[in-house]
Design a protein around this nucleic acid. Structure first.
Lengths: 220, 220
DNA sequence: CCGGATCCTCGGTGATACTG
DNA sequence: CAGTATCACCGAGGATCCGG
């Protein structure tokens, strides 16, 4: 590795390992699960392929991720986080929560990907609101299908449908406005940005289970 | 801002605000306290001055930091974190702890700065080992002088000396080897990388109060 | 001395094409 | 599918300069 910061410091080492451009976004997607090269490309549509290859190589060398060849007959290549790389999860969740407060409006050309959506739900999950709850929810957002299993303070969020969900949410707009308190869940429902196959109780639960902030907002 | 990642995602927003090269290191130093332009330059010797100016401007626009002119007669310019920027502290502490596990040997040309040292002590502080303790420690590392006030689970680390410390540590080598468990505090003392003006009890306390890991290590 | 702005070079990034 | 190769370009690196 070249391009160093020239300091003997934990933060510097971390940035040298995962702080290069696109690095943490690759980690974000791998936190959802092992991914093939092409999966990563699809989840990060704007990443140049040579950059993706370079980052994967660098992060493999520094022990953050691992390149693994699946047993036959699949024989395909997957990338996954090492145990060390997995320890970045709490950092990513906090960073995502911090940044989510500045999401604002959907800017031109911006997309929402499956993996980022999964991480967003994990990020904003409020453990304290989930004690004693045992729920299976399903979400639809365009072509994206996600389900979550809430089990007394713990949560699992993954791609795909789930059997016999307690409620199904269809997202048509910036539902993060509900999570950061800009609008109420009822307003989201009225405005049509959210439709629901479930009870009013589920709507309230959703608004309490997934939250951004309340934090101080940037000046701009 | 241009150069975007093209995704509507909290992590992406965070990286767009503080993820550019040198960004988080500026935040690291500002977490220690307000700093003048020249202070930041001295704390980040390898940063090009135009990059520092550019990052400061970008982070000011996104509401992470604030440019303030001190009241007369000082009238000097200082940069400081906004309330929003301050919320990055927990992210930085975790990131530093994660990266510190890969510190390894001091590489050629690498330096240790005052601010990074202060953040390192904050990063590695083990709250649980400090309950019931009320201590004032002082550290010397070359020209760097730091003191810390431990007060029943909480810690303050700052530059400069302190009156009537319970112990004074003189660091001459990679004392992080003690914190990550590679060697014992006694071995550090014997090898001369650490000298102590205090009791053996203080040595043990030091080893317990400031810890890296134990975590899984990178493959390399 | 402080707080930058300016200029120039170089290498990493971005975009695209190509290959085993 | 999993990358490598090529090339234009712009941001990082490094030095100098400048106004207060």
């Amino acid at each position: 590795m070249q391009r160093t910061y020239g300091q003997y410091c934990g933060v510097v080492r971390a940035l040298e390992m995962v702080g290069e451009r696109w690095g943490l976004l690759i980690v974000r997607d791998l936190l959802v699960g092992p991914r093939r090269y092409t999966d990563l490309r699809n989840g990060l549509p704007k990443i140049p392929t040579n950059i993706l290859a370079a980052r994967l190589k660098e992060m493999e060398e520094s022990g953050v991720i691992r390149r693994r060849i699946l047993p036959r007959p699949a024989s395909s290549v997957v990338y996954e986080l090492t145990e060390y790389g997995l320890e970045l999860e709490s950092v990513m969740l906090e960073l995502g929560r911090w940044g989510a407060q500045s999401l604002g409006e959907l800017k031109d050309g911006e997309i929402v990907t499956l993996d980022s959506m999964i991480m967003a739900l994990r990020t904003t999950f409020q453990q304290s609101s989930a004690v004693g709850l045992h729920l299976r929810y399903q979400f639809h957002f365009g072509p994206i299908e996600i389900h979550t299993v809430i089990d007394d303070g713990s949560i699992e969020v993954e791609a795909g449908p789930i059997d016999d969900p307690h409620a199904v949410f269809h997202i048509h707009g910036p539902v993060n406005l509900v999570m950061d308190g800009s609008i109420t869940a009822e307003q989201a429902l009225e405005s049509g940005m959210l439709t629901l196959d479930g009870s009013a109780e589920d709507l309230d639960r959703f608004a309490n289970l997934f939250r951004i902030g309340p934090k101080s907002l940037p000046a701009s």
